[in-house]
Write a protein that binds this DNA or RNA. Structure first.
Lengths: 162, 162
DNA sequence: TCCTGTATGTTATGTTATAACATAACTCAA
DNA sequence: TTGAGTTATGTTATAACATAACATACAGGA
């Protein structure tokens, strides 16, 4: 089951320099943590690297399995804690409908993203459509509701898979 | 933990005739199943009744515990199967961010709902804001993405809890 | 060096969900 | 009314996802 992951990663790799993509993400994370005075430890780096394995959502237990040395004996809490840290730093997002995680496309910016999840190839694209987040806030307000966080996950077919 | 459920149910009960609310839901379900030629069995009725215990989200295992006779020995698959059936009939919705279920406010209508989840009282309100679902479809289309299903779950504070 | 706070390790368990196969109960037609 | 086909539920086992609670290690400043 966990291999839709590597397949999608591979598919993506043929289109862009994914190596580079990952390196950028890691370098960005390093900078961001330096700025915020938090520690981008070896484990956190490694977990983030696994999240960026491809552009599809990655499961916590898949990450756990793939951590090599010196984390081979890591247990679930280590991974979940690293993921929580990365979420707090805005470096990864959790997809509620998949119980899985994706790297944030634009860390450093505070934003309300929406996630387009292709069930053909498994790839997840993050967009930031103000029209959506504003419509949510407006509609909620009409119901007397004050928004703190919105989760918008869209299941469908990406351009390539149509 | 499962008692935020009954609390919220009670709070709601003081404002409207919840007994009636449940009865309407069950009667509606019965009609809808009759129309669609599906069987609204005792178990399914009972599960739906538990989902309608209040206006907050209900967990599968809480339902399981509360099924009385003659379902006292039911196991998880029975509940999950009933819930799946009810979802297929559009009688309940699953809230992905809570791993929990709510009764559908307007079964019979095909729609893309949004869910306002109050973390004060736990109540969940379903709205159908075309502005939201249309913005989602438009924004996705701009990304070349064809939408099949959208999940919009909004966490915040309801009018009463502000 | 020692103190403090933060990160990770470790053990155990809680929570959510489904696969796979067995049995029962309904439906309809002969 | 009975038996074949279908749908629903029971049953057993386990998979998949997640965290509580406490122990240890490690970084950085006084």
């Amino acid at each position: 089951m966990s291999d839709s992951v590597s397949d999608a990663g591979a598919a993506q790799a043929s289109e862009h320099d994914h190596q580079r993509c990952v390196e950028d993400a890691l370098a960005g994370a390093e900078g961001l943590c330096a700025d915020s005075g938090t520690r981008f430890t070896e484990l956190r780096r490694r977990v983030l690297q696994e999240v960026w394995r491809g552009h599809d959502a990655v499961k916590a237990y898949d990450i756990l399995e793939r951590l090599g040395e010196p984390h081979r004996t890591a247990k679930p809490p280590s991974v979940y804690r690293a993921l929580q840290f990365l979420q707090e730093q805005g470096l990864v997002h959790r997809l509620e409908s998949l119980n899985a995680f994706v790297g944030c496309a634009e860390p450093g910016r505070t934003h309300q993203g929406q996630f387009l999840i292709c069930h053909g190839c498994g790839q997840v694209r993050e967009i930031h459509a103000d029209a959506v987040s504003e419509a949510v806030v407006r509609s909620a307000r009409e119901a007397g509701f004050q928004v703190q966080r919105q989760m918008v996950e869209v299941l469908g077919t990406c351009e390539r898979c149509q």
